Amino acid sequence: MNITQNCLDLIKKWEGFRANAYLDPVNISTIGYGTIRYPNGQKVQMGDIISEPEAEASNEVRG
């Protein structure tokens, strides 16, 4: 699936950036701009930390 830059910008606007992993409303470990899995397929774990450039790269790879 290809995600346009406009879509990525919308995700960033509504999700917001969080450097530290957190539990989303359904108790899934989430980080960055709503990422639940890293580009290598590994699940986000509580205690993980990500920089904003890393989070943006993760979204680009997903697209």
Rank of each mutant, 00 (worst) to 15 (best):
M1D: 13
I3A: 08
I3Q: 14
T4L: 13
T4V: 08
T4K: 09
Q5F: 01
Q5A: 10
Q5T: 13
Q5I: 09
C7G: 07
L8E: 13
L8Q: 14
I11K: 05
I11F: 13
E15L: 01
G16K: 02
G16M: 05
R18P: 04
R18E: 10
R18V: 14
A19T: 03
A19E: 14
A21P: 01
L23P: 00
D24I: 06
D24W: 07
P25Y: 10
P25L: 09
P25T: 10
I31N: 02
G32I: 01
Y33P: 00
Y33T: 02
G34A: 08
G34V: 04
T35Q: 12
I36S: 11
I36V: 13
R37N: 05
R37M: 09
R37K: 13
Y38D: 00
Y38R: 05
P39K: 09
P39E: 08
N40E: 12
Q42C: 07
Q42H: 08
K43E: 15
V44D: 12
Q45W: 07
Q45E: 14
M46W: 08
M46E: 07
M46H: 03
M46A: 04
I49W: 11
I49R: 15
I50A: 02
S51Y: 01
S51C: 04
P53T: 02
P53L: 11
P53A: 05
E54L: 03
A55M: 07
A55N: 08
E56D: 09
E56P: 00
E56Q: 07
A57K: 12
A57F: 12
A57P: 00
N59H: 15
R62M: 07
G63A: 14
G63E: 12
